[in-house]
Design a protein around this nucleic acid. Structure first.
Lengths: 342, 342
DNA sequence: TTGTACGCGTTATCAC
DNA sequence: GTGATAACGCGTACAA
């Protein structure tokens, strides 16, 4: 209720404890370098005054914010939000805060400047596959080493640290699963084309089909957008294609669900009439009706590993020489949305 | 490739443009207060040097970080992630960054200190209903006005700004919908008890049942945790209760889905044998099988409004006198998981 | 073990 | 319209 008083500074604490500001600072960051008695006095003064360190001043002095930035295309998507959860867990356990940004806009360079080269964030966790790593790496070349971990897909630039999953291999395994069940008429719902993981999955699909000697029909390739709506649109497209595929490999679970929904509207039941494989194994996948067969992405693992690498890079200094490349494997989870062909 | 050079400061720009640092600062924040010609010269110097403002220094000087903090219990939950998406959208359109924190820990005071009273964030968006607003408000009383908007439920403390939904009313409407369909044996899957919205929904359920002259059976009340697992557990409990309810009102969609799944395992089909109403209308609700009847929460709206209020408070200074209280209404979305009783 | 003095990069204030 | 100057709060040589 009192009028808004200035928050206490390290000087105030120093006065309270009859020591210098430097000593207070030492108590807070290197307690062993100060005597037992003064340490106690300072601690008491800290709680008396309700002192909290001023992060802005600290960041200015240290040229580090102890904050990382996670950039994702759409945090409302369950995939990214699960990853974010893991990122926050790992980061905060190491004393880092997490800044989140979406919809990066058309000028990633300007944007990155704003965030990273401004003592706002010490490093970038890049989950946006639609971004060009060249323009990012260009930043690093300006003289400032940019701690960056890309965690969305096969990175073309080996200089960029990355945590990825084997999208292509995973896609092949999904298609093989369908083929093992006797399916030969297999369609694919593709993700957004700007996204690199999309392309890897498409490549895996095509590769598997070729290896199996199965034809890829253009009408059975639907360009989607990783959301339920495009799954439903895919269903409409396949329905209109004259002949119906007996199985569909979808680029993610949301599209799979949209597809199944759309098919059901037309009287085509999954898995009775059509088998569907999703991708990601989002939280509701096992609870869907039918429970979804899908490629599980180790989302928490991705978030954890990427964060760990990034902070290691930040703290270890920029060891430009040896970029980290982690490849995690996806797992086929067979549930009830796929079955042997009649 | 060059050795890591220091990033350019406002002084460097000033030298390049043959002006003082003060002028550069003015060009950046109040361009109209500087002549056309020097303005151009400064802009040129900015791009030549690749200058970016140092936010830490700026925050230190201004005592503001242009950053807000969103605290939520679990960002992996689709409910919060959708809200976060809206929060980020609104915040960035007003030039603010968003810091996200979960797992606040046992000492919210200390935690808030760290984040808020340290020029790291200018305000708090509180989505964690398990937190005690008293200890939060206590902070404000220490002399520092804490910009805070609580956005999870009916706030007991009228001094705290809030954006809420009418949970109790919404619960009543859900139950009435079931009763209108002829149901009298109605169960409820409750959310986590620490959460206040849970209690409001429970209260609404009980109130509606009383007004309808319907009995509330203890075995048909299941204490859940807002996740799919507890929905399945609820199904098991109801199955074991001797008599099965013909309808269930679930505290959120994830539990509804878990319940339907669990029931199906036991041969009880929804909506044939049991009607289910969820809460939230998460993204997959319309695509579930059966499409879920649910109370839609205006999640984006909640995120937007809360963020807007918070930033207004931050920028308008702490007008302690008139806290903002926004109540948004939920909407009943009737789909196919509910039907008239046989 | 502790204190002094300086600088991190910015903006507001006051002159000119 | 523009420049000089001080101050924001902290950490760290260096000195004692």
């Amino acid at each position: 209720m009192t009028a808004s008083r200035k928050s206490p500074t390290i000087q105030d604490v120093a006065r309270h404890a009859n020591v210098s500001a430097a000593t207070v600072s030492r108590v807070l960051s290197a307690p062993e370098r100060v005597s037992e008695t003064t340490r106690e006095r300072v601690h008491a003064a800290v709680s008396e005054t309700g002192y909290t360190i001023n992060q802005a001043a600290r960041s200015l002095r240290l040229k580090a914010a102890r904050t990382i930035l996670m950039a994702a295309p759409n945090i409302g998507n369950p995939y990214y939000s699960t990853v974010l959860d893991a990122v926050i867990g790992e980061a905060s356990s190491r004393g880092y805060s997490v800044l989140v940004a979406t919809r990066i806009g058309d000028d990633p360079n300007r944007w990155l400047h704003d965030y990273l080269l401004s003592t706002r964030a010490d490093g970038l966790l890049l989950f946006d596959g639609s971004l060009d790593t060249n323009s990012l790496h260009g930043l690093g070349a300006e003289g400032v080493a940019l701690p960056l971990v890309a965690a969305y897909d096969e990175i073309p630039d080996p200089k960029v640290n990355s945590v990825i999953t084997d999208n292509r291999l995973a896609a092949k395994r999904a298609v093989r699963h369908l083929a093992d069940l006797g399916h030969t008429k297999i369609a694919h719902v593709i993700g957004p084309s700007r996204n690199q993981s999309t392309n890897e999955r498409l490549l895996g699909f095509q590769e598997a089909m070729r290896e199996l000697g199965l034809p890829v029909r253009q009408e059975w390739l639907h360009p989607g957008a990783y959301n339920t709506e495009s799954g439903t649109a895919a269903a409409a497209q396949f329905l209109a294609s004259g002949e119906l595929p007996t199985a569909v490999f979808c680029g993610n679970d949301e599209m799979a669900v949209g597809l199944i929904h759309g098919m059901r509207q037309a009287g085509i039941e999954c898995p009775r009439d059509i088998s569907v494989v999703g991708f990601d194994d989002v939280s509701f996948a096992p609870y869907y009706n039918p429970p979804l067969t899908t490629m599980r992405q180790p989302r928490e693992e991705i978030g954890r590993m990427a964060t760990r690498s990034l902070i290691d890079i930040i703290e270890g200094g920029a060891k430009e020489s040896d970029p980290v490349h982690v490849v995690l494997t996806s797992e086929l989870i067979v549930r009830e949305s796929t079955r042997t062909i009649r």
